[in-house]
Nucleic acid binder design. Structure first.
Lengths: 252, 252
DNA sequence: GGTAGATCCTGACGCCGCGCCAGGTTCAAG
DNA sequence: CTTGAACCTGGCGCGGCGTCAGGATCTACC
């Protein structure tokens, strides 16, 4: 072991440190280069010598890193503001992981649905892929898990009849949207903005406190859920409608 | 809309496709450059024109991508072997996500433990970081969740007395290991390999069916679990021991 | 004190999935 | 014909290292 018994302090070469901690030499080089873990001592020839303090710091770094914390955050937590900064970091990371876990659950459910669809139906038609995509992006971007639960409760509260009614109404809106697309109605026209407004109103029935914005997205979700059950429209029609509504929403 | 009504087919420019699907133009450029989604048509000036087939393919791509599938896998699944390849891909991805979910749970538990430790103890000493790191790397690399459960059951079955006995025995082994380190016993010597063997045997009590290899890792886990409760050794001693054992294991 | 082989150094490119310019060409509308 | 929007290609950048390449330096043995 290099430098043992010198001034009563133990010094490790980079290879020894790597072997002992399981971190690669390259990683240590990298940590040094970004200033996260500089070797306290350098020999005359430029070889790195690590102290026991460095070792302890390395353990902290690797632990946090294995918990998924990015190196930049580790650096600020270890160098920056003293007490409590580590705690705050861990709390943030825990929250981030919670988010990730929820997303993972979403993905797993979606994949299982896709697999069922494939095995029962023989194959997956592209149109179905579209509906899956719709639901995922809408869901992922606009709702937290809590909000999702709230929506489920609200839907349960509305009852079967109201749900059926809304579905018919929604189908009517889609039909009109397609008519507008076919007729070439411009996105800025009153017809189009009116459609968007009724669209959002219908959505707002399923959502109260959070306002119309999120409600519109809810409607999109109902949308794709319905589509997955019965697909009376082609992919091309749907994409045209999507584009039309998006454009109209920007104009209004 | 570009190219509408031409030969009865609809063609989209790259910007239109981007707006309609929510994919950025840059991403489409990238997909084109890696051959994942080439624009079927190019105008004389080199501008991309996408067909409805391209649109459908894009929906598939984005769906799989949002499910976490890497682009390379998507390409092989869409272009490669026909029926069943998609199903296999999804099954693989599902398995991968299951793994991720388990790892996430591990991480969350570990962070919560760390937080408890910090809040009850005022701060976290570096030595504790080391034990956390040990458990994580050992656990993460060598055990599946099922194996973990099996281990927990086995430990419960052994009873308190046997557990206590094993702990004392283990402490003895650590003491001897430290003696060897202090005395400079080489890793290839019979003393060292004998220590490793007894170490693994002790571990094998906690693990039957999977063999000694995994059992040794179990022992490592006990190791750090004990350390977290009472730390009679310094970080430096532990790291030296770890290195010694690793080296001896390679020699035997 | 010479030499071999292990270890060390710095510097550079590669990975993935794009984001984000820069500088030039082409399109659609008035 | 002009203007501004859309399009093109090509290049750098991120994070966290892995993986060479080419050279300097260490340790051990004769």
């Amino acid at each position: 072991m290099v430098g043992m018994e010198q001034h009563g302090e133990a010094l490790w070469s980079i290879g020894e440190l790597a072997a002992a901690t399981g971190v690669t030499v390259r990683a240590l080089h990298y940590y040094d280069s970004i200033g996260l873990l500089r070797a306290t001592v350098r020999t005359a020839a430029g070889h790195r010598r690590y102290t026991e303090q460095d070792l302890r710091r390395l353990y902290c770094i690797r632990t946090l890193r294995s918990l998924g914390v990015p190196l930049g955050d580790i650096a600020t937590a270890l160098d920056g503001a003293g007490p409590g900064s580590l705690q705050r970091l861990l709390l943030r990371q825990l929250a981030a992981l919670d988010d990730q876990a929820l997303q993972l659950k979403q993905l797993q459910r979606t994949i299982r649905e896709l697999l069922e669809r494939i095995s029962s139906h023989g194959h997956a038609e592209p149109a179905y892929f579209m509906t899956v995509l719709e639901r995922m992006t809408m869901f992922g971007n606009y709702f937290t898990e809590d909000q999702r639960r709230e929506l489920d409760e609200r839907r349960a509260g509305l009852g079967q009849e109201a749900m059926e009614e809304s579905r018919t109404e929604w189908a009517g809106l889609v039909e009109e949207g397609l008519r507008q697309v076919d007729a070439g109605v411009p996105a800025g026209s009153p017809e189009a903005t009116d459609l968007v407004q009724r669209w959002d109103e219908l959505g707002s029935r399923f959502h109260s406190s959070e306002g119309t914005k999120a409600a519109a997205r809810t409607m999109w979700n109902e949308n794709s859920a319905e589509l997955s059950k019965a697909l009376p429209w082609t992919a091309q029609q749907m994409q045209a409608l999507v584009a039309h509504l998006q454009a109209a929403r920007q104009h209004s």
